[in-house]
Nucleic acid binder design. Sequence first.
DNA 1: TGTTATGCATAGCAGTGCTAGACATTGGAC
DNA 2: GTCCAATGTCTAGCACTGCTATGCATAACA
Lengths: 127, 127
Amino acid sequence: MQLTKDLVAASATPLVLAILSEGENYGYAILKRVNELSQGELEWTDGMLYPLLHRLDRLGLVEAEWRTPEGQRRRRYYRLTNDGHAALDEQRAQWTMITTTLKRVWEDLPMPGPGLDPMAGARWEAS
Amino acid sequence: MQLTKDLVAASATPLVLAILSEGENYGYAILKRVNELSQGELEWTDGMLYPLLHRLDRLGLVEAEWRTPEGQRRRRYYRLTNDGHAALDEQRAQWTMITTTLKRVWEDLPMPGPGLDPMAGARWEAS
DNA sequence: TGTTATGCATAGCAGTGCTAGACATTGGAC
DNA sequence: GTCCAATGTCTAGCACTGCTATGCATAACA
């Protein structure tokens, strides 16, 4: 499946935050995890992940630390900060809102709420 | 709720396409419909909708026609083309895919599939 | 010794979405 | 009569930023 740029951009941050909420992690493994979670549909490059990680760091949503596990390569581990957790919740709420909105049209649900009804009951035949 | 730019950008096209799939419509009414569907959470400006509509027109996803209903203002009505319907289906599939992916992390679902398990079973304590 | 997997980094520009500003008509309030 | 709000549409131009392309390094393995 070929995803639009917009969608990739919009989902990148919440996805990384969500993955880090599972526990600290490092770039290369995050890449693998994204692939796994999306069952191969999302194909992120490292070139797009690292800048994002740096951005999240600048924004204070994650903390980074170099570490060299026993007998392994040097890696930079990232961990969610409190602000990061809050940001994740916020993003999640936003996604839920948008998804709910889209579903309302897609599934033609009856609509609660004030009901502006801009069309005053008029209906047009499609196409 | 304050939405990120990315998310607004990513949802704009599918939302407009979805609204037009309900039947032909014109700019001002689409704005109202968006407000209604999102129950006031989405506050689009006309300045962002019209360029989008023009773009969709250029891409051949919608057709436009000036019309002046009996005793009403002149309006430009937009209608989905076949390509538009196809694009809507495509976008919908993409959203579903992403949403599914995000839910997997958010809800910590057990994961089906090949199971790359890049961490070889290791678990870290979260921050 | 060559290749693949692991692991990280960033300069710089292409691409584009929106803000700001403009214009016109209708109807109701005062 | 006048004014304001709602209705209705349009576009130039630039600010912003996300990614592509590229570079570097080590380990394992064939």
